[in-house]
């Protein structure tokens, strides 16, 4: 069951973050940090369908994470969930059309190696 919860968490996290990044860029940069302005920004976020979907995926990921923490060590559960980084970097290039610098690819490869070491 530990592996099933880990896989569910990784996939849901990836879906949530790709959706968040895509829609936050469409919204535009947040540069007014006064409480009233921030409340307005949060209110606008909560009316955007991709953000609502991303929060749904985040909720799935969160409950999978809670179950994982119940069964496994924090020092296993959190680094193992870094598997989502590799998926997200690939999707950032393929779906979000980000320019991923070669240094970022190298960094992501090292992260992947670290996760593989923890999982084996």
């Amino acid at each position: 069951m530990t592996w099933a919860y880990l896989a569910l968490m990784v996939l849901a996290t990836t879906a949530s973050e790709v959706l968040q990044s895509w829609d936050m860029k469409r919204h535009g940069e947040v540069d007014d940090f006064r409480p009233g302005a921030l409340a307005g920004v949060i209110g606008r976020f909560l009316r955007r369908l991709p953000i609502i979907a991303s929060i749904g995926f985040l909720a799935i990921s969160f409950f999978a994470f809670l179950k994982l923490l119940e069964m496994a060590d924090l020092s296993f559960a959190v680094p193992a969930s870094a598997a989502s980084i590799v998926l997200e970097t690939i999707l950032a290039r393929l779906i979000l059309k980000e320019h991923v610098h070669w240094q970022r690819w190298c960094g992501t490869a090292l992260v992947a190696a670290g996760v593989a070491l923890i999982l084996t």
Binding site: E17, S21, G28, V30, T89, A92, R104
Partner: peptide
């Protein structure tokens, strides 16, 4: 994420992984 690339935010905030360990 409203101004930074996902491909920057995800790996750089993963510094938290070793702090979690």
């Amino acid at each position: 994420l409203s101004w930074a690339d996902l491909s920057f935010v995800v790996p750089v905030t993963s510094l938290g992984y070793v702090l979690n360990v």
